[in-house]
Nucleic acid binder design. Structure first.
Length: 919
RNA sequence: GGGCAUUUAGCUCAGUUGGUUAGAGCGUUGCAUUCACAUUGCAAAGGCCACAGGUUCGAGUCCUGUAAUGCCCACCA
């Protein structure tokens, strides 16, 4: 058997990869031999936003090394691959392209059509990425490949959302959020990137104070002036004191607020606040219960509050506002070149404008009872918060982070964690599994009756309208002339019926319903109002003698509302009825207590002709859409990290293969047949990823996995560094120092690239990479090739089968190489066990090149011509080579497999048993 | 402002619990070579392990401080 004179990676790699694929061994179900122990790595899914870069090559290499090693150790090794839809990133990429090519935005398309465009892009990108991973030699189980936005994962997301919604871990609320006016979506705190910027810093006269700002455009609504309570300079001003002053658009009443948030050292120590557009100001406003007024809209344009400036974009308005203030003599001075940080959306968006918006959040501080826990130190049913769960796993060593110092960073992050805003206003992603049904109600009270005029309470007694009441009904008709209602519901008592017929009878269908009747006062009917009032408070729960309580009215109305929600969703309806049912609406819809409803004075105003407005909203959250008509789904999508957080178990079949709430059932099922993927492969062994997404992702996987299935997601977190160029510079297109993985694979071979990537840098450190280094590793591959050529050339084919031939050290060289080999096996193994991949790589490199090639092969040339030593030497040569191939295979899979195949071996090297120390 | 790390040969980096003469790759210099490999071999030069203290029989390694560099978090209107 002859080998080519030098190793040609390009001729070998494709062929070898195909051999592996054909073997089916990437799927652990097909691995030969008795394998009981699982070893799982779930691949961090690359974003489908383009092609792989060298950083991906690094993660693929590290994970492939770990998987190949464990597979050779006899484990059922599963490396589960996948890709990430990367919501914002992918969508904004498509949007950018669309704008460049056709000058269109996504709003020029129907949602479905735009999504098709994104999906096409994602599909193309996906295919490229998978192809690239294969070229890197990734021994991943493609049969289990997952996508964060496929059907299975969508089910997982909906299930996860619902579980958390039911537990009230997920809530909807109006908070100050990071709004990106460019992408028109919120982003989470972690996605913010601060960019240093120089801007003019303005000092303005604000009454007796001087305030400073870089952003005069936010200042229109500022009517609170804040100073530190201990600031001696402003001792004479009291908290809550009002001050009249002249401001941008005229005179204004400002209120003094004393709060420790004001920094006495900064500027004059006095500031005004803009609660709607600053998180800090929002906090202050909440502390003191101040008014919050929106100034800037979602496009970044000024609202009506800005007066003349209304509609202008803040960027353009700034100069004009300063000019106006200057003209008014309110500009004190301007400092040019003030250095400050501007927050931007790191996902390719614009400058963040904080806004108050109704969004979905995950509450990280809410206590809940954990439904199922296999976690040491956490009992099933125990009360915990998500924050505590996240902290516990790492603190108690259940999850080990390598390198260790990242644990401190992790804790620091958790301690400062705020509720996680998970809703996004983009289209590409998992749509929130919440549906709404909405009815707008305008409520009118019937006209005055004869009883009313005599101050008697009618209740169910069918009192008629008085002359005034009839007149009022005509007035009502006039008042609602312009309004269009789909349906009018009316109490069947004649005072309401006559009112409704007069006001609406000629244009709208009227449906009479006895549930809309006034409270039945029983024995008090038609008696003096004063007596009724006296009993009102006591009549909430307790019926009037032989009549109803207010709770009874509430029940009738509740029943009525449920029915119209079902039958008449999304309609605009009017109700003409009495005061009692209206109070019930206050209680049912506005969530007032009965006492508050009574106390409210709005029904004493003459505004009854305009009606009182109620918005009836029903929210439905479940895995599947509600049945029935009239439901509309929440149009927001979820933060991409929400689905990524489920990744370790959604890829293994959750929730289909094992429902979190159904653990008892699945464990009893296990006796027959093989266990499902989730119970067998989860918790996974290693999560290997870049340190830059420790918070985004790793922490969220811990959160999701512990919450939903009561298991840690992984035992070890292995954080690799960033690949940099040889001068430690970050690789970037603009610097022109990027190394294209496919390019270097073409020139030097995958094995060389892989070896170079892990050869010289310890875990967690950044990795400087240069073409020279890869070239050096190509030389190493070639060296190995020639070692194999030498060994092969020095024995006939029969010797290739004498694997178990006993050999013994006959010479000093024999003795040394056997010792060295033993050492190498131990150290490479130890390196791989302890995640010291670079140490293992260096060891095998040294051993191969120096101990074996330079020393032993040189010595063997003498021994091979000595008949007494020849055969023994041949066996040592061959055995050493085989062990080298085995040790090196995880690192350089292609060339080792290729040589192995030339050595007449039965099975593939990739499933050969990892060597123990040789005899 | 707070935190985390790094500083070892010309360059890029190893050096796990403190233990002989501190290592590798690349580069440099000299020599060799029809020999498995010039994508080679042999050899050499090159380090007060950032600095200053301390602990110890013994410190690149542990402790304290200083300096430089990098990164992360917070953020001041």
């Amino acid at each position: 058997m002859e080998l080519e004179k030098s190793y040609d990676a390009s001729k070998t790699e494709g062929k070898i990869y195909q051999t592996w694929l054909d073997s089916g061994y990437f799927n652990p179900d097909n691995l030969p031999g008795e394998r009981k122990e699982p070893y799982t790595i779930i691949m961090p899914p690359p974003n489908v936003t383009g092609t792989l870069h060298i950083g991906h090559a690094l993660f693929a290499t590290i994970q492939d090394i770990l998987i190949r090693y464990q597979r050779m150790q006899g484990k059922k090794a599963l490396w589960l691959p996948g890709t990430d839809h990367a919501a914002i990133a992918t969508q904004s990429k498509v949007e950018a392209e669309l704008y460049k090519k056709e000058k269109k935005t996504r709003f020029d398309f129907p949602r479905e059509e735009f999504l098709k465009l994104v999906e096409n892009y994602a599909q193309t990108s996906h295919d490229i990425i998978i192809g690239q991973l294969k070229r890197l030699g990734a021994s991943a189980d493609w049969s289990r490949e997952a996508y964060t936005l496929d059907e299975q994962r969508n089910l997982a997301v909906r299930t996860a959302f619902k579980n958390m919604y039911v537990d009230e871990i997920i809530y909807r609320g109006a908070r100050i959020v990071n709004w990106d006016p460019k992408l028109k979506t919120t982003v989470s705190d972690d996605e913010i990137e601060y960019v240093e910027q120089k801007d003019p810093f303005f000092h303005f006269k604000y009454g007796p104070f001087t305030i400073g700002t870089v952003r005069p455009e936010t200042k229109f609504g500022d009517k609170y002036v804040v100073m530190h309570p201990k600031d001696e300079r402003y001792k004479q001003y009291k908290h809550g004191q009002k001050i009249e002053l002249e401001w941008i658009n005229g005179p204004l009443t400002a209120t003094i607020i004393k709060d420790e948030a004001a920094d006495m050292e900064f500027g004059s120590g006095v500031m005004t606040i803009t609660p709607a557009h600053s998180a800090i100001d929002f906090e202050i406003a909440k502390r003191h219960g101040l008014d919050i007024k929106q100034v800037i809209d979602e496009r970044g344009c000024l609202l009506a509050i800005a007066g003349d400036f209304e509609g202008q974009h803040i960027k353009k308005a700034r100069a004009a506002i300063v000019e106006k203030l200057k003209t008014k003599g309110l500009l004190v001075k301007t400092d040019e070149g003030y250095l400050h940080n501007v927050s931007t959306n790191s996902r390719g968006g614009g400058i963040i404008e904080p806004q108050i918006k109704e969004q979905w959040f995950i509450d990280v501080n809410k206590e809940f009872s954990i439904k199922h826990s296999e976690i040491a130190g956490i009992q099933t049913g125990q009360m915990v918060t998500l924050k505590q769960l996240m902290r516990h796993m790492v603190q108690e060593g259940l999850i080990k982070i390598i390198p260790e110092h990242f644990e401190k960073i992790y804790f620091h992050w958790i301690d400062n964690l705020r509720d996680w805003c998970i809703s996004r206003q983009i289209w590409y992603g998992h749509q929130i599994p919440v549906w709404y049904k909405k009815i707008d109600i305008t409520y009118f009270v019937h006209g005055t009756t004869t009883d009313n005029e005599e101050k008697k309470s009618s209740g169910h007694y069918d009192a008629d309208l008085s002359e005034l009441g009839k007149e009022q009904s005509n007035q009502l008709k006039e008042a609602v002339k312009e309004q269009k209602f789909d349906i009018v519901f009316c109490s069947d008592l004649q005072r309401a019926r006559k009112t409704a017929e007069t006001a609406f009878g000629d244009k709208t269908e009227i449906i009479f319903d006895s549930r809309l009747r006034e409270i039945n006062y029983g024995e008090l009917t038609r008696q003096n109002e004063g007596k009724v009032s006296a009993m009102k408070s006591g009549a909430v729960e307790k019926p009037f003698p032989k009549g109803e309580s207010y709770r009874d009215v509430e029940k009738r109305i509740k029943n009525f509302l449920e029915e119209i929600l079902k039958k008449y969703p999304n309609k605009k309806i009017a109700i003409v009825a009495h005061q009692g049912p209206q109070l019930a609406l206050d209680v049912l819809i506005k969530k007032l207590t009965w006492q508050e409803a009574f106390a409210n004075d709005w029904r004493n105003t003459k505004a009854w002709q305009a009606g009182w407005e109620y918005k009836l909203n029903e929210i439905f959250c479940d895995v599947n859409p509600p049945t029935g008509e009239g439901w509309t789904q929440d149009s927001d999508t979820l933060d991409t990290w929400f689905s990524s957080g489920l990744w370790t178990f959604s890829t293994l079949g959750w929730p289909s293969s094992a429902k979190a709430s159904d653990f008892a059932k699945t464990t009893s099922d296990k006796s027959e047949g093989k266990p499902d993927d989730l119970s067998f492969y989860h918790p996974t062994d290693v999560m290997e990823t870049g340190y830059d997404i420790l918070f985004f992702w790793v922490a969220r996987m811990i959160l999701m996995s512990t919450y939903h299935i009561g298991q840690i997601p992984f035992k070890t977190v292995y954080l690799h560094g960033l690949v940099r160029d040889k001068d430690r510079q970050k690789m970037s297109k603009s610097k022109g120092n990027v190394i294209d993985p496919l390019g270097v694979i073409d020139t030097f071979g995958t094995d060389a690239l892989r070896f170079a990537l892990i050869f010289s840098s310890a875990v967690g450190n950044d990795i400087p990479l240069s073409e020279d280094k890869i070239k050096g590793m190509k030389h190493f591959a070639n060296k190995l090739w020639n070692i194999a050529r030498f060994v092969l050339a020095n024995m006939g084919s029969q010797e290739l089968r004498i694997m178990n031939y006993e050999y013994k050290p006959l010479t000093k060289a024999d003795e040394e190489i056997i010792d060295a080999l033993k050492f190498a096996v131990d150290e490479v193994t130890e390196g791989l066990e302890n995640f010291q991949l670079h140490a293992a790589a260096q060891k095998i490199y040294q051993f191969t090149w120096h101990s074996f090639a330079d020393i032993y092969i040189e010595a063997s040339k003498q021994q091979l011509v000595n008949p007494e030593q020849k055969e023994n030497t041949q066996v040592i040569l061959l055995n050493s080579l085989l062990i080298i191939l085995e040790l090196l295979h995880p690192f350089m899979p292609f060339i080792t497999e290729e040589i192995w195949s030339k050595l007449n071996q039965k099975d593939l090297l990739m499933v050969t048993k990892w060597p123990a120390s040789p005899v």
